[in-house]
Amino acid sequence: MTDETSKQTKQMELSERLAVLKKNKAFIIGASILAFWVFSAIFGKLVARYDQDFADYESISSSPSLKYWFGTDSSGRDVYSRVIIGSRIIIVISFLATLLGAFVGASLGLTAGYLKGRFDMVLMRILEAISAIPVIIIALLAVAAIGRASSVITILIIGIIFTPNVARTVRAAVLGESELEYVAAAKLRTEKTAHILFREVLPNVLPTLIVEFTVRLGYAIFAVATLSFLGAGLEAGSPDWGTQVADTWSLIFSEIWWPTLFPSLAIASIAVSINLISDALLEVFEL
């Protein structure tokens, strides 16, 4: 009888699942936070109170006040405005990097999982080798080799480094699907491989891919922030959160904590919001 109850939950339609999702508390909280940052990223000038480079030399390193909600940094710039403006960089870079990784990874995973054989073997070896080096380290190596940090390079590097993970997840899902008899049934009506892959298998792997995308997006935020904190992610002087923390954190020993804490909390809040979303998706799609 337990089988039957679980079977009933498995047979939920997509619309039902979305309805459940909308009632999920973690999802609502995550989506709200993310929506705020995405809004800030697009309409940053509306939310910010000062220009990102505006400096008030009268009040350098002043603590949070009504005038400067999050205080000012050592150059007298408004921390609040810089945090708001900084959202755009991290969101755009992380999103594009994830998109790249997900696209390449999904294509490789689909092909490897369906074709199997030698192509699959060679590809998996290479991907395994790439993932043997921690993300941050391989990114640092690339930045050193190229000689300078830039957002385009960061996007490419993170995108490439994410490829193995996405490919592996998608491949596993495709391997499972291609065992199912609907694939044999498609072959038995003379479907071409491309049709089977994209029209038959892909729709069934899509939930897995969506969840993987959100999980990777979380990691991308993590990686971009860390790289820029280490001074290896973005052009020098960029108003993004990681750089802000890197530029100001030594001041916390002089108890000037605000220019460091607020961008740190911003990173934490966006990372957590994406995690809450992917966690809710995972639960609702029962992956």
Binding site: A225, G242, V245, I252, A268, N275
Partner: peptide, 16 residues
């Protein structure tokens, strides 16, 4: 949620 927050952010918060 704690796991997706970068180490350096934790470091900064803990030091603080």
């Amino acid at each position: 949620s704690a796991a997706v927050i970068p180490e350096f952010v934790w470091g900064v918060i803990l030091i603080l």
